[in-house]
């Protein structure tokens, strides 16, 4: 990833997540019935960070454990047969479950929309939320399904061949969003397939 160029650094990422937290609160008119479900791997950490900011902004929002969880979508993906077999991520719901609550799905990058499609399916197996919303750190376009995000950290126009990589302190040791061109030599094409689970958030199909 020699030609990777940062588009967001740690301070901006922090500010963006704070804004998303406020947007979520505003849209929901408070923290009542809110559940934030992150999509592993990086979405889980983003959901937790957004939830922390939400609790800070709205002290009545309740303990973090009541507010945040994770939703693994691997077993609902439509591209399993195109890739080597994946390890499963964790699914854990807050104690109250999702029935009749407002679920905000949190992911790092919105690209084709297929991950979100899988997440909606996975969610429907877990219960019947009152509403489902979507928050992403980066929207890089190129949707293949009729899906859009409710809360976007940054809209990032990209070429389809470019690759976008989100790095988070919890997983990668630093916060950054990197973009690299197709001329970046073999990495952008081989890297997602070789290392599907972590660090390959550019294409949802390669998570």
């Amino acid at each position: 990833m020699a030609s990777a160029r940062p588009v967001l650094e740690a301070p901006e990422i922090g500010r963006v997540l704070t804004r998303i937290a406020h947007e979520v609160l505003e849209r929901n008119r408070g923290a009542d019935d809110l559940v934030l479900l992150g999509i592993p791997t990086r979405g889980t950490h983003l959901a937790r960070r957004v939830a922390e900011r939400l609790v800070a902004a709205e002290p009545g929002a309740g303990p973090l454990e009541q507010l945040v969880g994770s939703l693994d979508v691997t077993m609902h993906r439509d591209d399993l047969r195109r890739n080597p077999v994946r390890a499963l991520g964790r699914t854990s719901l807050p104690p109250g479950g999702v029935d009749d609550r407002v679920v905000v799905l949190v992911d790092d990058v919105l690209f084709s929309g297929r991950t979100v499609r899988a997440a909606l399916d996975a969610l429907s197996d877990l219960g019947r939320p009152r509403a489902v919303r979507l928050a992403v750190l980066v929207d890089r376009g190129h949707r293949q399904l009729p899906i859009r995000a409710d809360h976007v950290g940054k809209n990032l126009p990209t070429a389809a061949e470019e690759s976008v990589r989100v790095m988070l302190e919890e997983v990668d040791g630093r916060d950054a969003v990197l973009i690299s061109g197709p001329d970046g030599a073999p990495e952008p094409t081989t890297e997602p397939a070789a290392e599907p689970a972590p660090g390959a958030a550019d294409a949802e199909g390669a998570r």
């Binding site: 077993m75 399993l80 047969r81 195109r82 890739n83 080597p84 077999v85 994946r86 499963l88």
Partner: peptide, 9 residues
């Protein structure tokens, strides 16, 4: 079964 069958052919 998942590990045997879920991946690419």
């Amino acid at each position: 079964l998942y590990l045997l069958l879920a991946g690419e052919d």
